[in-house]
Design a protein around this nucleic acid. Sequence first.
DNA 1: CCTACTTATTGTCAGATTGACATTAAGTAA
DNA 2: TTACTTAATGTCAATCTGACAATAAGTAGG
Lengths: 228, 228
Amino acid sequence: MQPTLAISTVIFALRPDENGRKALMLPLVRRIREPHLGKWALPGGPLEGNESLDEAAARNLRNTTSLSPRYLEQLYSFGAPERSAGASTERVVSIVYWALVGTDESNLAVESENVHWFAADCLPELAFDHNLIVEYALWRLRAKVNYSRVAHGFLGEEFTLAQLREVYEIVLGKAIDKGNFRRSVETSGAIVPTGRVVAGASNRPPALYTYDKTRSLADRGPLNKSSN
Amino acid sequence: MQPTLAISTVIFALRPDENGRKALMLPLVRRIREPHLGKWALPGGPLEGNESLDEAAARNLRNTTSLSPRYLEQLYSFGAPERSAGASTERVVSIVYWALVGTDESNLAVESENVHWFAADCLPELAFDHNLIVEYALWRLRAKVNYSRVAHGFLGEEFTLAQLREVYEIVLGKAIDKGNFRRSVETSGAIVPTGRVVAGASNRPPALYTYDKTRSLADRGPLNKSSN
DNA sequence: CCTACTTATTGTCAGATTGACATTAAGTAA
DNA sequence: TTACTTAATGTCAATCTGACAATAAGTAGG
């Protein structure tokens, strides 16, 4: 009577929503079998042969969106006995990950009848307890943006401070003072100026930065060393 | 070829170490079968019939120490394929919890040939990847003590500020200024004076406080509502 | 070339927070 | 009444924060 083990992933990207405004979005897949047939759900699947949990989550992400994550972290494991209730199937324990995908890459993501991107703060009713899971992932993302550098996961190699600030503004849903933002991010030492600038716009050309690659995006303590 | 699912728990308590000094300690159980026979390991076991993950961790804790936790939180899930290597047994995925036990109760804890308490910062070589797991739990505890009120999990209903500060000092392993500690903990609104004092000592009697029960010990966002 | 306009970047300043440390308060023991 | 111990409160400079002002460096259009 072992419960079934599944890996699911909440995938975040910044991309244009239906109004064309850049928003925090995530891809969902349509259930093609009972229970919850027809509802939208997090991409997921079983843990396979010899892969680690992290690898399973990454595979999962590739299969759904044909993208690779710029940041990937385990979120939580869900195993309440009622969560797959309604079905007469056996019990499922889900180990859930969350991932960030670069804005540019996310435009290449596949979309189809059964894969669709939704605005994170405006989801339909999802299968199982997936609404709660997304809510928690969102909470974690917003918390982590404030004390780590996960925001870089949305950006390319090089970026301007305005782009970085835009990420913060969209994720946190509020305006941030330009000057203060620059000050805090500069004193944190999280970013390194590349010396290059973006020319062409009809204003002062912004400097390009990159993040310090000698440090990982988020301090996960002892887990930084090991893979799972 | 489903992997086996197990629940383990890192249980922390403040209790006297072998030198009689109050220290951060945790109970371990001796492996009585292969693999890793004879080594010390985290208490754990399978997920049973109809219990939630949280319940399994709590049961686990009761079985090992006959105590109930004052704080219990999921830590992480470990599933690297090599982690149970060395054995020809099947693959094990562990969902690990961490718990805090009150100092007074922890003195009632059972200890036996196969259950022993160790100082958290001075462990022997443990079975599987359990050293890494304890290290991570410790890291999380120390981080969380700074931005939540989990420290109360070590104390009884009522406590003095000196007792609360002692918890911080032991967990963080450093001295904390009395005055500043009082100021920060008072302005945070985490504690409520009961009006009572501790009489009897040959000095000014300290006031007793209790924590604000309308708030949970740690803000876990959307997870505060649901049980797992 | 000069002016208007836009965004980047730097600067200012008052208020809040923090850490180190000093002082006063309230009890017991002798 | 004095000595001693820990509790509780107070002080102050340094740092950090948030709101906002001023300057810099481009382009576009005349």
